[in-house]
Design a protein around this nucleic acid. Structure first.
Length: 883
RNA sequence: GCCGAAGUGGCGGAACCGGCAGACGCGGCGGACUCAAAAUCCGUUUCCCGUAAGGGAGUGUGGGUUCGACUCCCACCUUCGGCACCA
């Protein structure tokens, strides 16, 4: 009964490979489709069933487009620089390149088993010197244009560990691991001037067919429009410039705050406050960003003793320093309007500063505000501006400030420049070197000084700069591990010594432009030829995880725009349509742990039942019993079902199923290899598409795959049921063509779950017929081909057609068969369905009324009532309103 | 706290524009086949009342608009994702 999936799937995978079925080629007069997946980082643990979900969706779209006559580019490659391979190298001494190559072999084999229609001849690897060369080339182009630059910026440096730590790794000024002190230390870093593109990155999102990610990127870029205003500092021939989005509240500015790391902070401080401000500034410098922004933190600050003059009221107002103002945003200083800003309000309360209402909800004056009023309103206590509504007042104020020369319109962004260097081994070397001052040979231990202020670009002809071999990959040195490769680092040219940059690029670098390399993967003269670019770009559909919604997709757009500016690419945006697939959750079973009681150790089931147990546990959770319990987890393999409930195998402990993101540590991963062995690739493919909407999070249910496999077996059975007939009844013909229509539309809209459902309905119908109509089966097999390509190829051949079905034409449908001339509709009385009748679509209202009232149950509910209104929507509803 | 998405049977989900809620699949129950089991096939399966015909309730909660609301509006609750002192 069941078909032999192993034989069929191996056979067709070999066929596709031998015949290069999915080679991407442009032919005259054909439309093109570039269908792209976010390429994976080949990790050591291999794929789990969640990984291929997005790849399957693109594969189905790509296969359908190909059947429709499109030239399709559907490539795959490896984003292979990254921390796991390096950490493995630190532990075992294995070169990351070796680990990476092995992992790629595993990934490639797993992906090939899934039957993807990739053009494997275009496979790329970001760690390949031939690829790195062009990543470095783009960096150099940015450097030439001043978009890549060095800067001393504060990082979390832990001297004891000898490494830079991420903000998340610092707790209370100490390292998360080991508890060693961490200092905020300025370190020389390479940065990319992404801020120069902030406005375009924000504005150009508008026309893209993207999900909520668009808004996330906008929020991340954080464009805000306002004004810069100058406040004269008392006793100094200088001003303090602030940025505000609420110039209309200027009359309510009762104090100012300057960031602790602002260059003027110490300079303006009065002698009496020097010591206190000095301490505060130093303490602020030690704190990580995480601490500064900790939830619900009480506002702190110190008066600088300096004062400024409110340029409109002329009143003298104090200047504080406080770390709720960030040095890196705006001008690093603010005017504080406590009446209309929650943070300023809180601070003013704490330091007993005046709170002056200047925007009133109703135009009347209020005293003793209980909280900040941040909405728009009507200006009060604002001199000549009184009575104006917030938006118009903003305009008038801006005009006024500009005319008086004390302020100007200004746009600010939250987006910061991109810190582009890492003190790591396994990344692209930054193709820069510096002059060295030395008396001997630095490679032999001679003293040397590197002049970092004179960076020199590696010439294009020398690219790529390759990574040196290394004994020890450990981080630690602020220079990075590459500094230890002295033979690689130092070199002589025209008798002078030079030192290479020893920082490497971050993981994101290679993925910023990989979609361009697929176009022309072996080109040694250009990153891609103009012809290849014109043939395929832009990307028509891009599918990948939403975790890359901001970083990767923002960085890639930035690089693309840069390449646009230097004429390498011809579209302002690379990815026209973006979709995020939802994660697949794995099931794990929860119960509560063992705990000690006087009479011995016990287990607690999820239902609160307590049973004796041999083992240990700790107290953390409280159940009804009052006992302290700890959550524990068991994988599916340790669970058995009894009377509809799940228990730990062999124990009287009830467990409850919980779905979580698949992870190795949780023990809830499902490996596709096992599923494929047992049920076949086609069953896995169809099941993953049938599970639910692509973008939604959904739990893996092993039982679900049985149903899908039964469906495939039934399709297979149709072809072996006996001779086919060329006759087809009208009902079947209608269903067949409607299925073709629906499957086609559903694939285009990525509603793959309902497409599968439609094919199941057709299969069930064809199965119920005494003889299978050939046309029905053929169209079903064609519709199925993108989803279950191996079985479809087999059946297509069995139907007598030459392979491959992969390039057979997509089936057509007769629109006339897809509309009904008569439709069964519900008949309502006062909005409640009381019967149903079949009416021709063009039935008159009179005819509909007569027919509806003839229904005995409808008549029963209308008896003795007066018809006051009749609602008749042909094909939809008939509703009698009676009284 | 702010921004975004989502809440429908025992479970995954369907219902495209406001018009028969629960398609399709899983699971359950009943039956056929079988010496028996598995596999397969057929029937049934939202809940409550009823032998049935039929009736009532029902799409997170409470209101509203409408002849008619899973769908639109208002308020709230819960879950998930993102941001988090950005002036």
């Amino acid at each position: 009964m069941a078909y032999d999936h192993r034989a069929i799937e191996e056979r067709w995978q070999r066929y596709w490979e031998t015949n290069q079925t999915f080679r991407a080629e442009r032919r005259l007069g054909r439309p093109k489709a570039y269908v792209l997946d976010m390429f994976p980082y080949p990790s050591g643990s291999g794929l789990h069933v969640g990984h291929p979900l997005g790849y399957l969706a693109t594969d189905i779209v790509a296969r359908k487009k190909r059947m429709q006559g499109f030239d399709v580019l559907h490539p795959m490659g490896w984003d292979a620089f990254g921390l796991p391979a390096e950490q493995h190298a630190i532990k075992t001494g294995t070169h990351p390149a070796k680990t990476t190559a092995e992992n790629i072999t595993v990934y490639r084999r797993q992906l090939k088993r899934l039957g993807f229609a990739y053009d494997w001849s275009r496979e790329i690897n970001t760690t390949d010197p031939g690829y790195v060369r062009w990543t470095q080339w783009i960096f150099l182009k940015m450097y030439e244009r001043g978009l890549a630059f060095q800067a001393e910026i504060p990082v979390n440096w832990c001297p004891a560990l000898g490494t830079v730590l991420a903000n998340e790794e610092v707790i209370d000024g100490r390292s998360e691991v080991g508890g060693f002190p961490v200092v905020r230390q300025p370190l020389r870093q390479w940065q990319l001037r992404i801020t120069a593109y902030a406005d375009r990155l924000s504005e150009d999102l508008e026309p893209l067919d993207w999900p909520e990610t668009r808004q996330k990127q906008r929020d991340w870029i954080g464009k805000s429009e306002g004004a810069e205003v100058e406040f004269p500092i008392e006793g100094r021939n200088d001003t303090l410039t602030v940025f505000t989005t609420r110039p209309d509240t200027l009359f309510g500015a009762t104090y100012m705050v300057i960031a602790p790391d602002h260059p003027l902070t110490l300079a303006i401080t009065s002698p009496a406050q020097k010591a206190a401000v000095g301490r505060y500034v130093e303490a602020a410098a030690r704190k990580s960003d995480m601490e500064r922004t900790a939830l619900n933190r009480e506002k702190t600050g110190v008066p600088t003793g300096a004062h400024a003059k409110n340029p409109l009221t002329g009143r003298k107002i104090p200047i504080f320093t406080a770390d709720y103002v960030l040095g890196a945003y705006g001008t690093g200083a603010i005017m504080a309007v406590p009446a209309h800003d929650e943070r300023d309000f809180e601070f003013a309360r704490r330091f007993e500063l005046p709170i002056v209402e200047v925007v009133s909800p109703d135009g009347t004056l209020h005293e003793g505000l209980e909280r900040a009023y941040t909405e728009d309103g009507i200006a009060v206590r604002s001199g000549q501006f009184d009575g104006q509504r917030t938006p118009e007042m903003k305009r008038h104020m801006l005009d006024y400030l500009e005319s008086k020369g004390i302020g100007r319109r200004r746009v600010n962004y939250k987006l910061r420049d991109w810190v582009f260097s890492r003190q790591r081994y396994w990344g692209e070397p930054i193709p820069i070197y510096f002059p060295v001052e030395t008396q001997g040979d630095p490679r032999q231990g001679a003293e040397y000084t590197i002049d970092y202020t004179q960076p020199i670009a590696v010439s294009e002809a020398e690219l790529p700069v390759r990574l040196p071999e290394l004994e020890d990959y450990r981080p630690g040195d602020p220079q990075g591990p590459l500094a230890r490769a002295t033979d690689w680092r130092f070199f002589q040219k025209n008798g002078k010594w030079f030192a290479r940059e020893t920082n490497t690029m971050p993981q994101w670098a290679g993925s910023c432009w990989y979609y361009l390399r697929y176009l022309d993967p072996k080109n040694e003269r250009e990153l891609c030829s103009a012809g290849a670019y014109d043939a395929w770009m832009p990307v028509d559909l891009y599918i990948g995880g939403s975790e890359h919604g901001v970083l990767h997709l923002l960085y890639a757009r930035f690089w693309h725009k840069f390449l646009f500016d230097i004429g390498v690419v011809k579209h302002p945006e690379p990815f026209l349509k973006l979709v995020h697939q939802g994660p697949i959750l794995g099931t794990i079973f929860r119960y509560f742990s063992a705990f000690e009681r006087e009479d011995g150790p016990f287990f607690a089931g999820d239902d609160g039942r307590i049973v004796p147990f041999e083992g240990e546990g700790e107290a953390r959770f409280a159940l009804k019993t009052g006992e302290k319990l700890t959550e524990r987890w068991a994988p599916e393999a340790e669970v058995e079902w009894r009377d509809g409930s799940a228990y730990l195998r062999g124990k009287d402990v009830r467990v409850v199923a919980v779905n979580e993101k698949m992870s190795k540590s949780r023990g809830n991963v499902v490996n596709p290899d096992g599923v494929i062995d047992e049920h076949g690739t086609d069953a896995l493919r169809v099941y993953e598409m049938f599970m639910g909407p692509l973008e939604q999070m959904k739990p893996w249910q092993t039982s679900g795959i049985y149903g899908v496999r039964r469906f495939l077996d039934r399709v297979d059975a149709l072809s072996s049921k006996g001779p086919l007939t060329d006759e087809m009844d009208l009902e079947t013909a209608k269903l067949v063509d409607r299925t073709v229509k629906k499957v086609g539309e559903d694939i285009d809209a990525l509603r793959l779950n309902t497409a599968v459902s439609a094919m199941m309905i057709l299969t069930n119908h064809l199965t119920s017929l005494p003889v299978v109509p050939r046309e029905g089966l053929e169209k079903l097999v064609l519709c199925l081909a993108p989803f279950a390509p191996h079985l479809a190829e087999e059946l297509w051949e069995r139907l007598g057609y030459p392979p491959p079905i992969a390039v057979a034409g997509w089936p057509s449908f007769d629109p006339a068969l897809c509309v009904d001339n008569a439709q069964e509709i519900g008949v309502q009385v006062n909005g409640k369905v009381r019967g149903r009748v079949t009416l021709p679509l063009d039935a008159s209202e009179d005819f509909a009324r007569e027919t509806g009232m003839a229904d005995p149950n409808v008549a029963k509910f209308m008896e003795g009532k007066t018809l006051t209104k009749l609602v008749y929507v042909p094909g939809k509803i008939l509703n009698f309103i009676v009284r």
